[in-house]
Each structure stands twice: as C-alpha cells, then as structure tokens.
C-alpha cells in the first residue's frame, strides 16, 4: 500500500525534523523543501496529498508559494495548511486570501498539528 505523501515547506531545520519525525512515525511519507521555489517545484513533481506551508521563507513567502500552487489547476485541489506566526497579526486572513485551506499558529504542538492533518486527509 502506497503511503500518503505530505510536502513540508519549511526553512528551519529543527521544525522540519520535528514534523518529519512526527509524520513518519504516524505512517506518512514526508517530502521536504527549504525554499518557496523548491516547494512549488516539489508540489508539481512529487504530487503530495497535503502541503504544510511555512510563511516565512528565504526567497518568496508562503503566501506567494500558495498562490502559485493554487494557480495550477492540476494542483489546486491539494489542501494546504499554513503555519503562521503568532507574532504577525492578520496572518490568518492573508493565509486564507492566498488560498490556504487551514492554518496552525507557530509554535505548534505536534499533537495538534497531527490532528489537523488527519482532518484534511479524510
């Protein structure tokens, strides 16, 4: 049986590893991307079933990456969960406007994140 692929776009190594350890343990296949451009490319080439999108990325931000992915008709159905920063007010609104399906605020609890992911993969 094929494992469900989840694309994690995140520039912070520790955050990436926590998500990887969490999701791998939960039985998912994790694809990792560090920059916005890498993320968009991975979404196009790897065909993930869900994307975790960090907002602060080194090249262009998560909103832009989300817009590019959602603009592609073959990818637009993939649910995207934004990981927004608690520090910046109005991020939630911006995330929805960019096309994200849900958001979790950073710092997140792995348990809560896993619950959210499961909700969107049903």
């Amino acid at each position: 049986m094929m494992k469900t692929k989840i694309l994690v776009i995140e520039d912070n190594e520790d955050n990436r590893r926590i998500v990887r350890d969490l999701l791998t343990n939960a039985g998912y296949e994790v694809i990792e991307a560090v920059t916005g451009q890498e993320g968009v490319t991975a979404a196009e080439t790897q065909g993930p079933e869900l994307i975790l999108m960090d907002i602060q990325l080194p090249d262009f931000d998560g909103y832009e990456a989300t817009r590019r992915i959602k603009a592609n008709p073959t990818l637009s159905a993939i649910p995207i969960i934004a990981v927004t920063s608690y520090a910046l007010s109005g991020d939630d609104v911006k995330a929805f406007e960019a096309g994200c399906n849900a958001y979790v605020t950073k710092p997140f609890s792995p348990r809560e994140l896993l619950a959210k992911i499961r909700e969107y993969l049903q």
């Binding site: 955050n15 710092p107 997140f108 609890s109």
Partner: peptide
C-alpha cells in the same frame, strides 16, 4: 521575543515527541 520563540518551539516540539 519573536527570535526567542523559534528555539523554544523546537524544545517544546522535541519534548512532546
């Protein structure tokens, strides 16, 4: 405080895992 949260986030995340 924003910068302080990033490493704390990792500490809390690993602990929970």
């Amino acid at each position: 405080s924003h910068e302080l949260r990033t490493p704390l986030n990792a500490i809390l995340g690993y602990t929970e895992l």
